Amino acid sequence: MLFLSAVLLAVTLAGCAGGPIEEESKDADEVTDAAHVHPKASAKLKSVAHRLLHTPAPLPDWDTFVFPGKRFAAFEPVVMLEREALRVRAQSSVSILRQRFEPQLSRTGQLRFSWLVDALPDNADLTQSALADSPVRVVLAFEGDRQRWPARVHRLSEMSRLFTGEELPYATLVYVWSVKDAPGSVVMNPRTDRIRKLVVDSGTAGLGQWREHVRDIRADFLLAFGEEPGPLRAVALMTDTDNTQSRLTAWYGSLTLEGGTD
């Protein structure tokens, strides 16, 4: 399962509903077993995601991505500290909400996002496959020249396709909250260097507070990969606590992604 978890991080993360509900008790358990059910985003969740998460592509809708064999904790529209948000009550689970771009975005600009967490995964370590959990992530999946890949990455991409139905993106840049790595650090995925994590929050100092970030996507991709970014094929929100078997609650606020096609 550790290998499957690594593949998860590599895949293409990937009418009018009512208003947001007020934040409620954490006691309710919204975690399902993805081995037996494939929860799809509800019309209300898609409506709130469309209102809260802004990208250059109005379609397709944001939708959940459930990784085979992993527990899934739902994204729930709520209001948290007077802000509309999407809440994930994680419990040894993996939660992904993503939008794929069709056509891919050939130009990218700034990325603005906000998130809040009440705890960090127990003993998480982004450098170790067995402990590589994070309470919140914003994931950007890019296309590029796959001929530059070594043979081992082609094999990993094929295994990703077999397990998930999707090939490995050429490169994946992940904005992440780390338990211990300093902000500004670039952390390689322990299984493949095609996934690189850029730490924007670290440690417990910001717990329980809305954290705001404005990032230059091109500059961050250059920092992480040392080359120009290719077309952007997907953006995703991701909370994972499966490796550390942790329980926590994460909230995602507004997100704005600038970009376009030529």
Rank of each mutant, 00 (worst) to 15 (best):
1 M>C: 09
1 M>Y: 10
2 L>Y: 08
2 L>A: 08
3 F>N: 05
4 L>P: 02
4 L>I: 06
5 S>H: 14
6 A>R: 14
7 V>K: 13
8 L>A: 04
9 L>I: 03
10 A>Q: 12
15 G>W: 11
19 G>Y: 07
20 P>S: 11
21 I>R: 15
23 E>N: 13
24 E>S: 15
30 E>C: 10
34 A>D: 05
35 A>S: 15
36 H>L: 10
40 K>V: 11
44 K>T: 14
46 K>R: 15
48 V>S: 06
48 V>G: 02
49 A>T: 11
51 R>K: 13
51 R>E: 05
56 P>E: 00
58 P>N: 08
59 L>Q: 15
59 L>A: 14
60 P>A: 06
65 F>W: 12
66 V>H: 01
68 P>C: 02
70 K>M: 10
71 R>W: 07
71 R>E: 04
71 R>T: 06
71 R>P: 03
72 F>W: 00
74 A>R: 15
75 F>Y: 13
76 E>R: 15
80 M>V: 00
80 M>H: 03
82 E>M: 08
82 E>S: 15
84 E>K: 15
84 E>F: 07
86 L>E: 05
87 R>N: 02
88 V>F: 02
88 V>W: 00
90 A>T: 02
91 Q>M: 05
92 S>A: 12
92 S>L: 00
92 S>D: 08
99 Q>V: 03
101 F>R: 00
103 P>N: 00
106 S>Y: 03
107 R>C: 00
107 R>T: 00
108 T>Q: 12
110 Q>F: 06
111 L>R: 13
112 R>Y: 09
113 F>A: 04
120 L>D: 01
130 A>D: 13
133 D>H: 10
134 S>M: 07
134 S>Y: 08
137 R>K: 12
138 V>C: 11
141 A>F: 03
142 F>M: 03
143 E>V: 08
147 Q>G: 09
149 W>L: 12
150 P>S: 08
160 S>R: 01
160 S>W: 01
163 F>R: 01
165 G>W: 09
169 P>R: 10
169 P>H: 08
170 Y>L: 12
172 T>S: 15
174 V>W: 04
175 Y>I: 01
175 Y>R: 02
175 Y>S: 01
175 Y>M: 02
176 V>Q: 01
178 S>I: 07
180 K>D: 07
180 K>A: 11
180 K>W: 10
181 D>W: 10
183 P>Y: 11
187 V>R: 13
188 M>D: 14
189 N>F: 12
192 T>G: 09
195 I>S: 14
195 I>P: 13
197 K>C: 08
199 V>G: 05
201 D>R: 15
201 D>P: 01
204 T>H: 14
204 T>I: 06
210 W>P: 13
216 D>L: 10
216 D>T: 02
220 D>W: 11
220 D>H: 12
220 D>A: 11
220 D>R: 15
222 L>V: 06
223 L>Y: 06
223 L>W: 09
225 F>E: 14
225 F>T: 03
225 F>L: 09
227 E>Q: 03
228 E>G: 05
228 E>L: 11
228 E>D: 14
229 P>C: 05
229 P>G: 07
230 G>P: 04
233 R>Y: 03
234 A>M: 08
234 A>P: 08
235 V>G: 04
236 A>M: 06
238 M>K: 03
243 N>W: 01
246 S>Q: 00
249 T>F: 09
252 Y>W: 02
254 S>M: 09
258 E>P: 01
258 E>N: 06
259 G>H: 08
261 T>E: 13
262 D>F: 03
262 D>E: 13
